[in-house]
Write a protein that binds this DNA or RNA. Sequence first.
DNA 1: TGTATAATTCAATAGTTCTTGTATTATTGA
DNA 2: TCAATAATACAAGAACTATTGAATTATACA
Lengths: 112, 112
Amino acid sequence: MNETQAVTSLAALAHPQRLRIFRMLVAEGPNGLPASEIADAVEASATAASFHLKELDRAGLIFGTRDGRFVRYAVNIEGMRQLLAYLVDDCCRGQPELCGATFKKIRSVCSK
Amino acid sequence: MNETQAVTSLAALAHPQRLRIFRMLVAEGPNGLPASEIADAVEASATAASFHLKELDRAGLIFGTRDGRFVRYAVNIEGMRQLLAYLVDDCCRGQPELCGATFKKIRSVCSK
DNA sequence: TGTATAATTCAATAGTTCTTGTATTATTGA
DNA sequence: TCAATAATACAAGAACTATTGAATTATACA
């Protein structure tokens, strides 16, 4: 993960419909959902949903696989972990005594 | 944390200089740094730095406190924790067996 | 093969955010 | 009070992102 990738991922999430899609897929887990079902759930047109799904895919946060005439999208777990880790990398310069319990929990995300 | 707040926070982070500032303040810990030092470090003009610091502040990710003629900015730990928690809330519908080790770690961020 | 469904691409417009320079406010110390 | 430093506010144009509808591609199945 580098700065440019992180900015791309954060920008992808910084949109109400995309954020709803992402959280939905996080909740859904590895199986994911077809694009049409996602579009319905967030009340987006097929065009809009496709645009937003592509943004999230490009950002490495989800990925789509064709399944017959459907494309199923699912969360990219490793991409998501890398983003969270990048945000809190080197927090409090590794001195947990500065950070308190909250930071300790957040830091556990950093490790693979 | 609601959707609108989360989008605001993610948009605040989705900019190279602001992301650099945020990570710098995460590394720095509770004491934070004066605005001028931050501006130098990210090679931004005073105006640009002020604009970006205000965005991060508005998003609840950092906060500034005046200290003589300086304003020191520091990370808002609780704001950051809430954002990370919002992203991974209800992951795999609470069934860790779907998620694997990575998700279990990420989930630890959710708890207060 | 032809029709229906799922999804994506394209192009134009509308809307937002970023950048830059200048002006202003706040604080300190001579 | 005056000069210097730190920071913020404002305004205009540039750059980027989102939205919409129409057209296109991919797949299934009668």
